[in-house]
Design a protein around this nucleic acid. Structure first.
Lengths: 343, 343
DNA sequence: GTTAGCACTCGATCAGTCGGAGTGCTAATC
DNA sequence: GATTAGCACTCCGACTGATCGAGTGCTAAC
């Protein structure tokens, strides 16, 4: 048969994938003729399936089991067969209702969102917070606390707050701290946090500052407060993947959990997802993460105002209800963007 | 035989428990005579074990397996047999080294501590943050951000920071915000956060405020910022318990993970642990948590200055290396207390 | 009180059997 | 020429029975 996928081939591939998604069992020719009104006999379906196998779209675990879609098949399915459903009214309401988190700590909002993604999709929810380095500086403050401690607070225009508790020798006065903070706030207007850091490091080495011990200390304080490190990653609903039959094996399960404990791997992946706007889908090994074998990731970027600032998504088995989950991710991302913009 | 536990009985019970902790397999009479120099024959040991079983300290899964310690046995072991080892020099160094987290976000410190507990014990680490309601108010601030947003920041004497992003109608001026914040900061000196909340709710209903719309709004802002809810709980190293053979069953594993997703259950338990200072041990069903069957919890309280503020600990299987883990929990709690005090 | 000896029990393991599901091929049919 | 019925074949999984080893409880001897 042709290398080209016939229309009938497509329909049968779709049937296999959908059955497999539903049952996690290899799909046989009989099953398909029964459940999908194709008006074809099992024998015919077998012929077609054999062709699909040759094209690398199906695989059989062994001779007398049914067949399983390959990654290539999922990719094809997602690209050109799947019709993304509209999100159901119910889901929409549920998401909207649970997004009523006005007045919450901004970090909490993202965590809640991650949990929301996990429960609505029944897979794992992931949200990558905005990269601290790229947000825009708004204000810095130093607050003197009892016990020779100073709390430094760094506020960004997008409303995120970084703070550090630092011990100092006791002869700093609150008035001096305020003066320093005002001066710095003035100096650093309009810079991104990354630039702020650079500026401060420069200043610290400048001649002028060398002889101003107060300023030197203020700069040191600021420097300790600035976090240009990795953005936070909120991973919720890990227990959900325990329900997936393909991970019922204890060893496999352990591997996956260990992999997710190392968040750096996921961060890389999410960084890649942030390169392009909108919904993206990584199927199995496409993510180039060894441990992601058998797992897929659906992501979408979210924004504050006009800037793409973060990524959120759902991680599940390759055998995932794409048609159902894609709109959930999409809708949630849009809702969060709106929430971050106005609130 | 007597109801009273003989000295020999104790030694044999100890041997069974230690073997079982090491291997997770039911322990037979032979094994014991071999590994622990008791100078007794297997038959004698069998007799004693039979007595121990009658006393409810041992149980046999079936006739021809060895025996397993019961919860009662663990309790006895922990109370009167176990000699808690001194913490090893290595562990001490490791913990101390990893506690060098000066300049970190206070919440991060606790999270790190939890991870530290999990890796040094190779079970699960848990840290309950100080109850927000009971910390002492220090300062409140309102910062106007672009886009009709106001960031409210609540600072406690212990260095914790709560912040909320709130949308407002645009006619509030930064000067007014500062004035309000200063006024409130002045009014609320010395109160706990819980008292602050109460005071604010009272004020909001007072006659005077009714006609001062600016003040009314400031109060509303503050009220939204205050979180008197549950303290945060940092649970790290969940993957570690997957290594325990008794949880290799997928169903059991799922149950446990699900249980830990509901943090409220653990919070209750930790609240109980906070009633008494120092190290405490909950064995299996003693915690009155249904899902804690087969698991034990070792906790210690930690303090800032003279006040007990939180609890940290390790969760592992009942079959846990108590002698090894207890000093780890103890030492970590002391170290964190010192860290929170000075820093 | 302790121990050696022995019969007994029970789970784990392994080989063998059987049935069901599914395939591929061939020949008949539309 | 495409489709289908029929059939032999393959392979897995579930079940069965036999065997083995670890461990026990009991009894009688030390």
């Amino acid at each position: 048969m042709a290398d080209q996928l016939s229309d009938r081939g497509k329909r049968i591939l779709e049937a296999v994938i959908e059955d497999y998604i539903a049952t996690a069992e290899p799909v046989g020719s009989r099953t398909i003729t029964r459940s999908h009104a194709l008006a074809l006999s099992p024998a015919t379906v077998r012929n077609v399936m054999s062709d699909l196998e040759e094209m690398g779209l199906l695989a059989s675990p062994h001779t007398s089991a049914g067949r399983i879609p390959t990654e290539k098949a999922y990719r094809l399915y997602v690209n050109s067969i799947l019709e993304v459903k509209n999100i159901t009214r119910d889901k929409k309401d549920e998401i909207r209702r649970r997004c009523q988190m006005a007045g919450k700590d901004p970090a909490q909002v993202l965590k809640e969102t991650s949990r929301l993604l996990s429960t609505t999709s029944s897979y794992m929810g992931v949200v990558m917070a905005p990269r601290p380095a790229s947000s825009v500086f708004h204000q810095i403050e130093f607050v003197k606390l009892p016990g020779k401690r100073v709390l430094a607070i760094l506020i960004s225009k997008n409303g995120t707050v970084q703070n550090r508790l630092v011990q100092v020798d006791e002869d700093i006065r609150q008035e001096d701290l305020v003066r320093m903070a005002n001066y710095l706030t003035d100096q650093l207007q309009g810079l991104t946090i990354a630039q702020v850091r650079e500026r401060i490091l420069n200043e610290m080495n400048s001649e002028k500052v060398r002889y101003d011990s107060l300023m030197a200390r203020a700069l040191a304080l600021s420097e300790q407060t600035i976090n240009t490190g990795n953005p936070e990653l909120f991973l919720e609903g890990q227990a959900n993947i325990l329900d997936q039959p393909e991970f019922s094996d204890a060893g496999r399960m352990r591997e996956i959990f260990r992999a997710f404990e190392k968040k750096s791997l996921l961060l890389d992946l999410f960084d890649r997802a942030m390169q392009a706007d909108g919904v993206q889908i990584f199927i199995g090994s496409e993510s180039h993460l060894l441990k992601m074998e058998g797992m897929s990731l659906i992501t979408s970027t979210y924004m504050t105002g006009k800037d793409t600032v973060g990524v959120l998504g759902v991680i599940g088995p390759t055998r995932m209800g794409y048609g159902r989950v894609i709109p959930i991710v999409d809708y949630t991302a849009k809702l969060i963007s709106r929430l971050l913009e106005t609130e």
